[in-house]
Design a protein around this nucleic acid. Structure first.
Lengths: 197, 197
DNA sequence: GATTATACTATACATTTGTATTTAAGTCAA
DNA sequence: TTGACTTAAATACAAATGTATAGTATAATC
């Protein structure tokens, strides 16, 4: 990627913010108005941003500029809560969602859970966090997973040795779980935390 | 919410998909072309969708229809990184953003930082996390803040006793900071973490 | 029968928007 | 100096787009 001048950067930032705020791209004249510039001046900035690969054009449509790697969001449903220490509770109304970038979900099957308990605190996962889990994914030693143990679920660190699965808590006060009946539901790919008040 | 006719439902679905695919609302004529309808016909459908509350209009802008409850995201710029243990580094290109729901930012002035170090690990803030900070906010004892101490910044837990400010690390290996020259930059309102690989 | 809502066409017009052209000034490097 | 690049303004024109109006037809309801 070539480098941008100060002005080009500012124009790109404005476009970014405008799009985030209004769910549409600005017109040439809307950009001009924001910076108190002439139309022609903005045209040149847009041209530069295009030739440097920071914007692309869709024909001569109105509001027809686009980002080469536009931010797409998918709504991931929060299905329930999971005791990082012990096990899962179903939540009745699945009307709550986390919105995350499709760059992260990448067409994978995902769902989200609210964390309860403190068994994963040393790994930075605390009560109230919302974790996004990708299903049907290959897991490796050290990955953080949501697993079903004898029908109940938990967030743990995955380890496999000699075909035997061990589920470790990062908090040493909790025992390592092992069982013949462990099913890996999915792997942690994202976490969000909201600080309220 | 009043009910929609079959045709109105189809038009609304098309608008929805068009918006998801192209990050912009369709024009009257684009809708007409899709359904092989006349312009006036589409106008009526849009009018009906508006009067029933499924769409709203923004003036007479091109592509100026909108969903009443669209998820709004604001792009929060990642301005640099901050050592949760020690101090801040500026990042030159502010082309990186976190996208968070405006329900959370609520018109507050925000910026984001990448966390380095482990001084806040017991609070669930670990290396690589992206934290969103709200500026110029009232802070209370126990809040997690970004503060400037003698010109350098850090993420700490805020305490004030007898007009003296203390900045505590949750990791006991780090000392509590106190100084006559402490400025509170902002308060933590959000955190995101991506698990890669 | 009269009224209302829906569905559709066709056309005209005003505004918005993208694009092109010309001119000019400043910076920086060869 | 020359040339390339950036920044900027002013204006004109074509295309895209929103809006308004008039007319037809069907079905449901009172």
């Amino acid at each position: 990627m070539k480098e941008l001048t100060d002005k080009q950067t500012k124009v790109l930032q404005f476009i970014n913010k405008f799009h985030a705020d209004n769910a549409m791209m600005p017109t040439v004249r809307e950009i001009a108005a924001n910076f108190k510039l002439s139309i022609g001046s903005v045209q040149q900035h847009l041209k530069a941003l295009q030739s440097k690969g920071f914007l692309i054009k869709r024909g001569s449509l109105s509001r027809g500029i686009d980002f080469p790697n536009r931010q797409n969001f998918s709504a991931v449903a929060i299905l329930g809560s999971v005791h990082a220490g012990t096990f899962l509770e179903q939540v009745e109304d699945a009307n709550d969602y986390v919105y995350i970038n499709t760059d992260i979900t990448r067409n994978r099957k995902c769902f989200a859970l609210k964390v309860k308990g403190d068994s994963m605190e040393p790994s930075g996962i605390v009560e109230g966090d919302t974790i996004v889990v990708s299903q049907g994914e290959k897991v490796y030693n050290g990955d953080i997973v949501v697993a079903l143990v004898d029908g109940e679920s938990a967030v743990k660190i995955f380890y496999k040795e000699h075909d035997k699965i061990f589920l470790k808590s990062s908090n040493p006060h909790y025992p390592t779980i092992t069982s013949d009946n462990i099913e890996i539901v999915g792997k942690l790919i994202y976490l969000v935390r909201e600080y309220k008040g």
